[in-house]
């Protein structure tokens, strides 16, 4: 197996030790840190995402894989100075006002980061105007809205309405998700996309922002 395949395997199995070991080995073999990231660490997470979606991997394992990926990244960080890590785009993400659920939203943030996106995770109970302000400030391309309660779903629509009112609707793609949210709801409020799970959110963001 090549060192890149070893890194991919280490990430899939959530083995931090091996992720560090093989990333160091890759460097010692003279591989470019960006290659180790994109074709090793991120490539591993690209396999983890669909497996999670298909019910073949579960949250603890996905978290271990992410930890392994980050451990490998820590090895590479000092070597990245002056090298541009390619970002697929910036996502401003949060749970809407009135809703304090964050586990699913954090999983989405983690998977998006692993998928090459820059993520600004605003947290929970975020006012609609804050999403818009942060997206403008961060020059984001995507706004991700999460809700776990049917009672807080209307707050998603508020974000879209503020964007429309401020003449900024065409500047951002708005994605919605969370247990009670459906494609129909996304269509009804005029969102640009709906993702039923974290892996689908990555696929959707990639579709909306092709590299």
């Amino acid at each position: 197996m090549s060192v890149l395949e070893d890194i991919i395997e280490a990430v899939i199995h959530g083995d931090k030790g091996k992720a560090v070991k093989f990333t160091q080995k890759g460097l010692s073999e003279g591989l470019n840190p960006l290659v180790l990231i994109n074709q090793g660490l991120v490539a591993g997470m690209d396999i983890v995402g669909p497996r999670f979606k298909n019910g073949e991997m579960f949250i603890p394992e996905v978290l271990q894989s992410a930890a392994a990926m980050h451990a490998g990244m820590d090895v590479l960080k000092p070597r990245l100075k002056g090298k541009e890590v390619e970002s697929r785009g910036t996502v401003v993400l949060g749970t809407v006002q009135g809703d304090h659920h964050d586990i699913g939203k954090n999983l989405v943030a983690m998977m998006l980061e692993a998928g090459g996106f820059r993520v600004l995770n605003l947290g929970v109970d975020i006012r609609a105007a804050n999403f818009v302000d942060s997206a403008v400030k961060q020059k984001a391309q995507l706004i991700g809205l999460s809700a776990l309660l049917t009672t807080t779903m209307p707050a998603m629509n508020e974000v879209i309405e503020i964007l429309k009112k401020n003449g900024k609707r065409d500047k951002f793609k708005v994605l919605v998700g969370g247990a009670p949210v459906t494609q129909k709801f996304a269509n009804d409020i005029g969102a640009d996309g709906y993702a039923p799970d974290a892996a689908s959110a990555v696929e959707l963001c990639r579709k909306l922002l092709p590299s």
């Binding site: 019910g55 991997m57 579960f58 949250i59 603890p60 394992e61």
Partner: peptide, 8 residues
Amino acid sequence: FVLGMHGG
């Protein structure tokens, strides 16, 4: 479906 809360 048996959810993998532990997974292992």
